[in-house]
Write a protein that binds this DNA or RNA. Structure first.
Length: 130
DNA sequence: GCCAACGTTGGC
DNA sequence: GCCAACGTTGGC
């Protein structure tokens, strides 16, 4: 899940303790939000500034209508921070990694909420420990 | 239903 | 700050 850190950063989420993932206005990203189940894990990616995966989150509440718009098409989920990565995983590193060649972060750069296979998720965590 | 124009995202 | 990619809108 991507956020520009000057708008909403992982540090802010840590401070808040819980966050509402609002503002998604793209059908594909919306569908990915709706596929999330309580207890699912998600990675927090800082787009634009940093361009790196910085933390792990857990979905604490499944999708409901986005309170920031009247438009019924859009939804939010609620998340809480699980851990801050010791070493952020840079987009560069992900691009160079053979195991992560097919993740949407690389292929669909503009998509803000995207699914990961379990092995891809674990691989990113592994790269954060190097 | 097509497509040009336009707006937004995000990497560089 | 620029631009590529791509989604959306509106005229026809």
């Amino acid at each position: 899940m991507k956020s520009e850190p000057d708008v909403y950063s992982f540090e802010t989420l840590l401070k808040d303790g819980v966050g509402i993932w609002d503002g998604v206005r793209n059908y594909q990203a919306r569908n990915n939000l709706m596929a999330m189940k309580k207890g699912d894990r998600a990675l927090f990616y800082h787009s634009n500034i940093g361009k790196e995966v910085v933390g792990v989150m857990e979905i604490t509440k499944e999708h409901y209508p986005d309170p920031t718009t009247e438009d019924k098409r859009w939804v939010v989920v609620e998340v809480k921070p699980i851990e801050k990565l010791k070493k952020p995983v840079k987009l560069d590193t992900i691009k160079k990694d053979l195991i992560l060649q097919n993740i949407p972060l690389i292929k669909h750069t503009r998509l803000s909420v995207m699914p990961l296979q379990a092995f891809e998720f674990e691989r990113i965590l592994m790269l954060s420990k190097d």
